[in-house]
Each structure stands twice: as C-alpha cells, then as structure tokens.
Simulated assay, not measured.
Amino acid sequence: MSATGSPRGKLILAGITFAFLWASASAATKVGLSAVQPMVLFVPRFFLAAVIMLLISHAGMKKSLPQGKEWGRLAVYGLFNISLYLGIYVVGMTGTSAGLGSLATATNPVFISLLSAVWLRKPLKPLTILSLLLCMAGIGVAAWPLLADSYATPIGLSLVLVSMIAYSVGAIYFSASNLGSLHIFTVNGWQTLFGGLFLLPVMIWQYDPALNSFNLTWLLSTLWLIGPVSMVAVLLWLFLLKDNPVKASFWLFLCPVFGFGISAVLMHEPLSFFTLAGVVLVIGGLCLVQMRRLKQQ
C-alpha cells in the first residue's frame, strides 16, 4: 500500500494541503484588494459561502434548523468569528503584507490559550506568557524590514493582531455556547450569514464605485477564498480535528512557511534573515503551547 493510501498517509496529505490552502488566504486577500474595497471583497463571499453551506445542511443533509436560544448564540458567534475577526482582518490587510498576515494567523492558538485563562479566571502560566512573547517577538522581527520597505504599516499590522483576538474570543465563546448538537455546516452556514448581515451596512456605507473593478482579478480571488479556503480547507481541518484535536494544531506550524513562500512568488515580497528568524520564533511559541496541550491530553 502506498504511503498516501494508509491512514497516516492520508492525515499527512490532509495536513499539508490544509496548511497550504489556509496560508494562501492572505495572498488571495491581497490580490483581491488590488481590485475592490475590503468589504466588497469579503461580504459577498460570506453570503455565497453561507448559502452553499446552508443548502448542503438543510436541503442536502436534511439537518434541522437551530432552535430557541441557538439563534442568538449563532448570531453572537457570527459577530466575533466573521464580522469582527474577518472584518477587521481584511481592513488590516490593506496595510499588511501577505506573509505577515499568514504569520499572524498562525498565532491564534496562543491567543486562545491566553484568553481562555482570563475567561476561566485561572492564573496565567509562565509557559503561556512565554509563548505569547515569542510569537509577538517573531512577528516584530519578520515585520521590521517590511515596515521599512513599505510592504506593511504599523496600523495595518495592529489591526490584523486585533482581529486575531476577536477570533480567539469567538472560539472560546463557541466552546461554551452548547452548539455542539448542531451539524458543523449548520453552525458555519448560519454564523457566516449573520456575520455578513452585520457587515452589510458597513459595505453599503463605504461603497465607492470608483474604487471597485469587478475584473478577473476580483473574480479569481473571490472564488479561491470561497472554494479552496472557506470550504476545502475547513473540511480538511475538521477531518484532522476528528482524528486528534491537539495533533491537528501542529499543522498550523506550516502556515507561516507556506504563507511567506506564496507571498514571495505571487506578491514578490522579500524574504530575508528577519523572515526566517520571525517564523522560527513564532513556531517556537506555538510549540510551547501545543506541547503543553499534548501532555495534558
């Protein structure tokens, strides 16, 4: 039997593919932003992705609709996980390089660990603080030459990091919201729809026809963000989580590597010793958090 035909081989292939597709989101976002405004790029994508997932869930799989308080919980989850996280992220990416965007995204497990301790009123462990310091130092080191060469701005990078905090709050809220009885397509479909609805007034208010060109660049970027990123990558992530949630998170380590590689090829962003040092520091911070989780498991 071939390596990729074995269960372990399938997990490895799924992990590598997930990391590549997830890391490509930052570059696809930067490409799309060259054609349209931030909200114009993301809000229609949310509605289209939501419709597809809800059709699969309710029309195809015949899953039941949310009930009672589940509607409110899905709306709150959509506010944090879509409206605030991706809404702030796409605005921040107008002033952040694609490589830095993927590097910041990889730090989510560290922010989740930190905010979980605060949420549950547990004392912060030195390991968690050290991992956060390593990740922040890594982002700072990788950003230094890009800031100097105008590939990124302090405001843009700050907004991207704020969006990571919003995502982490959403993840913690979801874990405590008792939505586990709903199918994943039901949860993702409705929370994406709610998130898009919350951002729709912002898109309408900011819309300027002169700043939007619905050309092939916009179309390809949007299709890539909807298909390979929002659907294929998420399904692969669920496949990895089903096998082992803690081990699945280790595939996030590849995201910064793929992210800077993709940005160098597509966006011609420079790679340097600072890039390597930054990636190593962030991966080191992630390792500390993940190794602790692995021991707890």
Rank of each mutant, 00 (worst) to 15 (best):
F253M: 04
L179R: 00
S168K: 02
S221N: 15
P109V: 07
A104Y: 09
F273G: 14
I165H: 08
L124T: 13
L41T: 15
S26L: 01
V160F: 11
A19V: 02
L11T: 00
K10W: 08
S2H: 10
N212A: 12
Y89H: 09
T96I: 11
T4M: 14
V90K: 00
S272E: 03
L132S: 08
I112E: 10
M61A: 13
D243G: 13
I56V: 12
F198Q: 02
S97C: 07
S64Q: 12
L179D: 02
A233P: 15
S168Y: 00
T192S: 14
L84S: 03
G95L: 07
Q206Y: 08
Y173A: 04
V289M: 10
I184S: 05
G156F: 03
L54S: 03
S64K: 13
G101Y: 00
Y85Q: 01
L220R: 04
L79S: 09
S249E: 09
P209T: 07
S150F: 13
S102Q: 00
A171P: 01
K63E: 09
V169A: 04
F273R: 12
S6T: 11
F47M: 12
T105D: 10
K122F: 10
V110K: 02
F18Y: 03
M1A: 14
V76E: 05
T105V: 15
L182R: 05
M203R: 05
A166F: 00
P123R: 11
A148F: 04
M136T: 05
S113G: 15
G156W: 12
A28N: 02
A264D: 10
A148I: 06
G5S: 14
I184T: 01
L286E: 14
M203E: 07
F258C: 01
P209L: 04
L271A: 08
G196N: 06
Q290R: 05
G140P: 03
L133D: 06
T186C: 03
L216Y: 14
T96Y: 10
L252Q: 10
W251N: 13
L236V: 05
M39P: 00
K10T: 06
H183S: 08
R121P: 11
S175K: 04
V110R: 05
L86Q: 05
H183E: 07
I88W: 11
T222S: 12
G9T: 00
G284L: 15
S57Q: 06
F42D: 09
S102F: 07
L115A: 10
A210D: 14
L240N: 12
N244S: 10
I82D: 02
I129K: 11
S213Y: 00
V232S: 10
G285E: 08
H268I: 13
G32F: 11
M93W: 04
R45L: 00
C135E: 01
P109E: 03
K247S: 09
Q297Y: 13
W71H: 09
T94L: 10
S158A: 15
V232A: 15
L199C: 02
